[in-house]
Simulated scan of single mutants.
Amino acid sequence: MGATLGDFVRGIVVPDFDTMRTFDRDDASKLLTAVAFAGLGGFWTLFYSYWMREKGIGMAGGTGPAGGEAQPALPASEPEAPARLRAWHRYLSIESLTGIIGNLFTTLMSCLLAYAILRPRGLMPDQFDIAVVQSEFFAASWGNAGRLLFLVIAGAFLADTWLATVDSVAHASRCGERALASFAKQDRVRRDRPLLRGPGRAQPRLSARADAA
């Protein structure tokens, strides 16, 4: 294992492209996509704000839960405000760094296991067989019990991602509907507002409903 780990580390630091015989150059775009969207991915990162709002971090503490109506929350001009801002910034930095390091570690461990266990046997995870092939990580030490345990954990991760997606997309759809309703209401108010024509004179403008009639 020591030699395998050494070869893996050297391959990460100084890739030897001449010996990468199992890598098809046509798969480079797939590899870059997989690296860019490791974890939940860039699309789901947009939903990070909902998670912060639910936790009440920073100014989100005055907005209420994501499922309810948003309440105005503006920074207060107080002497302790800069200290609170630094505390929020420190919290976000630590939390983001923890996620980055954790994802990087698990990704490298998966790559190491694939290099040490799957590559010598010619096993290549592909499409719907990814979890099945990767279950050999545990099966190498624990047999069929390890393979079953890995598949159960993989299923739990997929379910977690699915639930996070459903919840986030639902929040995004609801926020979008509220924003569109707010814009429509403002537009109706603007259309029904009297239009000033000339100094000191106001002539009412017909509403959109009246125009249509």
Results as ranks from 00 to 15, higher is better:
Lys185Cys: 06
Gly41Gln: 01
Trp88Met: 11
Thr98Phe: 15
Ser49Asp: 09
Phe43Ile: 06
Ala83His: 10
Pro65Gln: 01
Arg147Met: 05
Arg90Gln: 04
Glu80Leu: 13
Cys111Met: 11
Arg53Ala: 09
Ser49Glu: 10
Ala60Asp: 03
Ala73Lys: 00
Ala139Arg: 09
Ala70Cys: 04
Trp88Phe: 13
Leu180Phe: 13
Ala164Pro: 00
Thr165Phe: 15
Asn103Ser: 12
Ala154Arg: 01
Ala66Ile: 14
Leu112Phe: 15
Phe183Tyr: 08
Ser141Ile: 02
Pro75Ile: 02
Leu180Lys: 11
Arg84Gln: 12
Trp88Glu: 04
Trp162Phe: 14
Leu180Asn: 00
Ile100Gln: 01
Phe150Gln: 00
Gly61Ser: 08
Asp129Glu: 12
Ser135Phe: 06
Val152His: 02
Pro125Cys: 12
Asn144Arg: 15
Thr106Tyr: 15
Asn144Gly: 11
Met52Arg: 12
Arg53Lys: 11
Arg119Ser: 08
Lys185Trp: 10
Phe128Asp: 10
Leu92Pro: 00
Pro125Leu: 05
Thr45Asp: 13
Phe37Asp: 14
Ala73Ile: 00
Glu78Asn: 03
Phe128Asn: 06
Ala145Trp: 08
Leu104His: 13
Arg90Phe: 12
Ser141Asn: 04
Ala145Asn: 03
Gly61Asn: 02
Thr45Trp: 08
Phe183Asn: 10
